[in-house]
């Protein structure tokens, strides 16, 4: 009898111990399911519907994708082409700067110059600011009549209203705003390279350039891969800079895809959430393909 009770107790305890782990993960899993998993599945589904955000979605098969990709009389076809072209253009121009500038900063900081800590803190600082505040400040920097840039260099450049200056302005703001994180990553990576390599290379008569390409770059390869992929993903999601700096102009030349997605789904007038979802999925697929390509080309094949 006693043994039976004991056994039951153990069973009970054991059952409890099976349940507790789920209590620990449940809060996250519930939030994850409601606010990530269901929306993702639902988002894919509504891209195959003519949904207007309010009523019930009606399944229309591939019609949205057909219209976006092939119907050149459609305004959304134009939007996708313009938005995707501008988004890719921005990624192609900005990502190299967002890798090279912080890498140069990290290399310079790595020789331990005076005020190094101050420089590091300063370059990192803007990445903690909201994009709307950053753009308000830079809008005035680029102001034609009152801005310091035109006044100090005696220019009359209409920065945010003419090309290519509008893109230059957007890229400058992006670099200023975002490079801090990458710089810190490179600094940590450079710190981890053994000094012995460089000493040996110096004895062999390697020039600093040779040392950089033969020792430094290969040693921080995984951090470069990580930052290239993450920076590219971040820049594909560009939205705030063109919205508030150029408002997509001049002549839609800086209108990026996320602006069209936002307008179509949530802008004034009838919501066209179905088409907007299809646009979002096309953008998502582009991001995944580009990440995959970068990964294949940049990963360390020797390992």
């Amino acid at each position: 009898m006693d043994a039976q009770v004991e056994k039951n107790n153990i069973k009970h305890v054991k059952k409890d111990r099976h349940l507790t782990p789920w209590l620990f993960v449940a809060p996250h899993l519930i939030i994850f399911a409601i606010f990530f998993l269901i929306p993702v599945i639902f988002g894919i589904y509504i891209s195959f519907t003519n949904w207007d955000l309010m009523g019930s979605p009606k399944f229309i098969g591939l019609a949205n994708y057909k219209e976006l990709l092939f119907d050149n009389s459609s305004v959304f076809y134009e939007q996708l082409r313009t938005g995707l072209k501008n988004t890719f253009l921005f990624v192609v121009i900005s990502v190299p700067f967002c890798i090279i500038v912080p890498l140069l900063m990290a290399l310079a900081l790595n020789v331990k110059p005076k005020l190094g800590k101050f420089f590091q803190a300063l370059f990192y600082l803007p990445s903690l600011f909201a994009i709307s505040a950053v753009v308000i400040i830079w809008n005035l920097m680029f102001n034609v009549a009152y801005g310091p840039i035109n006044n100090i260099f005696h220019l009359k450049t209409v920065w945010t209203g003419t090309q290519p200056y509008a893109w230059i302005a957007i890229v400058v703001v992006t670099i200023w705003w975002t490079i801090g994180g990458n710089m810190i990553i490179y600094q940590a990576a450079l710190n981890g390279i053994s000094k012995d390599y460089y000493e040996a290379a110096e004895i062999d008569g390697a020039t600093p350039t040779q040392q950089f390409f033969k020792i430094t770059l290969p040693s921080i390869r995984s951090q470069i891969l990580y930052t290239v992929v993450m920076t590219t993903i971040a820049q594909f999601n560009i939205y705030g800079q063109p919205l508030m700096l150029t408002n997509g102009g001049p002549d839609s030349s800086t209108s990026v895809l996320l602006m069209y997605i936002q307008q179509n789904a949530f802008g004034s007038g009838q919501s066209i959430a179905g088409i907007a979802s299809a646009m979002a999925i096309i953008l998502g697929i582009c991001i995944m393909i580009v990440s995959a390509i970068q990964f294949v080309f940049l990963r360390d094949n020797s390992r």
């Binding site: 993702v40 789904a265 979802s277 979002a280 991001i287 995944m288």
Partner: peptide, 23 residues
């Protein structure tokens, strides 16, 4: 479960903005 969660990080978040609004 954990690897499934990690794999979902690869998924571009832009896709779920519109349906998340509905939720």
């Amino acid at each position: 479960l954990f690897y499934f969660l990690l794999a979902t990080m690869m998924f571009p978040s832009v896709v779920n903005i519109i349906p998340l609004y509905k939720i």
